[in-house]
Amino acid sequence: MAWFVLLVALVGAERVGELAVARRNERWSVARGAVEAGAGHYPAMVALHTGLLVGALLEAWLGDRRFLPALGWPMLALVVAAQGLRWWCISTLGRQWNTRIFVVPGLRRVTGGPYRLFAHPNYVAVVVEGFALPLARSAWITALAFTALNALLLSVRVNAENAALRGLAAGG
């Protein structure tokens, strides 16, 4: 169980790092005239992502979930791959990346890096991590609950983001 606690703590620390990057990018964006879009769903997103971490730990501990190598190793690999994709997104978007939706007037929509493959690659990372992290320790209830709730939340989030990005011309 100790390795799983460490894994979840590392993912949690990564989230704190994301928030620091997001806050810096928010200040940069607002200074250039950006206004936040879709702010109403953000608290639910924070709660859901926090619930993923807490739920995975609680279910693994209270449910006495075991590490099943045939499931756990592939899920661990997916968690690592999701982090790689997430940071590829962050580095590709640079100062335009945020956990909130900010669009800086006059900038071009980023279409390089993973964004040349699909419109919202960061959400692919979120979806993969959302089922893979708990399943690395057989926490299937958390994986199912997060996946279902995240699907609802992402439908709102992606619509808000697409609406905010409509005014940007495609670019690098």
Rank of each mutant, 00 (worst) to 15 (best):
V128H: 08
F146Y: 10
L117C: 01
T147A: 07
T147N: 02
Y123S: 10
R157K: 02
L154W: 02
P134A: 02
A119P: 02
T111C: 06
P114Q: 00
E129F: 09
G130C: 11
L144C: 13
R157P: 09
A143Q: 02
L135C: 08
G112P: 09
G130P: 08
A143G: 03
S138A: 12
V110W: 13
S155C: 15
V158T: 11
V128S: 15
R116I: 07
G112Y: 01
Y115L: 11
L152W: 08
F146G: 01
W140A: 01
G113D: 05
L153H: 07
F146W: 02
E129Q: 11
L149S: 05
Y123N: 12
P114R: 01
R157Q: 10
F118Q: 04
G130S: 07
L154Y: 00
N122P: 10
N122Q: 05
L154F: 06
G112N: 00
A148T: 10
P134H: 09
T142L: 02
I141E: 15
A143T: 04
R137E: 14
S138G: 11
P121N: 05
A136T: 09
R108I: 12
A148N: 04
Y115T: 06
I141V: 15
W140G: 07
G130F: 09
T147H: 00
G113H: 01
V156F: 12
I141S: 13
L153W: 06
N150T: 04
E129Y: 07
V128D: 15
I141T: 14
F146P: 02
L149R: 00
R157S: 13
R108M: 15
L149G: 00
A132E: 15
V110S: 08
V124F: 15
R157I: 14
Y123M: 11
R108H: 03
A145I: 11
A136R: 00
G112A: 12
L135Q: 10
A119V: 14
T147R: 00
R109C: 10
A132T: 13
L154T: 01
A119G: 13
F146M: 05
L135I: 11
L144F: 05
H120P: 06
P134S: 12
V158H: 03
V124I: 13
V126P: 02
T111Q: 13
V127H: 01
P134D: 09
R157L: 13
Y123K: 04
R108P: 08
T111L: 06
E129L: 05
G112T: 14
S155N: 13
T111M: 04
T142G: 02
V127P: 00
R157F: 09
L117K: 00
G112H: 03
R109E: 08
R116K: 00
V128R: 08
V128I: 15
L133P: 07
A145P: 05
V126Q: 07
H120W: 07
R137G: 06
V128M: 09
A148M: 07
F131D: 07
A145M: 11
T147P: 01
L152S: 10
Y115F: 14
A119N: 03
G106P: 11
R116A: 08
Y123D: 15
L107S: 12
S155R: 06
Y123V: 12
G113S: 01
R157W: 08
S155T: 10
F131S: 01
A151N: 05
I141L: 15
A151M: 08
L149T: 02
G130V: 10
